[in-house]
Amino acid sequence: MTDIPPISVQLLSDPKYLCGVRELVAAVAGRLGFSEEECGQIKLAVDEALCNIVRHGYQRRKDGQIWISLSPICNGQDVTQLRIVIEDEARQVDPGTIKGRDLADIRPGGLGVHIIREIMDEVVYEKREPTGMRLTLVKTRCSCPASKP
């Protein structure tokens, strides 16, 4: 066994590169057995996480570094979960303050964290040493054979 994730991507915090990463993540999730709906959800969650790094972390600077890695989690031969780790060197914030906004307050913006938490089964924000933040996302396959009755 190795802890090296099978896929790691490094990108700059430029919005025009987000489409390539989200398509890659969705394609890999599909190949691992996630349903089309789940792939769409994972794609959206990853995109929202990257958008938040670009907008809030790097404050729209386009030259910040972002790393994303994907690791399947298996139960025997079956892939049951996908772990996605997204790291940056952007400004650090207290993870406890990262919350989605009240949806009853209809206004532009502030939806990203809510969407991520709604879609993914595990969402963990933490400070990364020596700089930046780390976000770990886990999605469990609803369609995996082990979860069927």
């Binding site: 794609k43 959206l44 929202e48 958008c51 206004r107 532009p108 913006g109 939806l111």
Partner: peptide, 16 residues
Amino acid sequence: EYMDSSGVATLVEALQ
């Protein structure tokens, strides 16, 4: 075919 929250925010702004 795809919209993220920045697209949604744009439409919310237009609605307002």
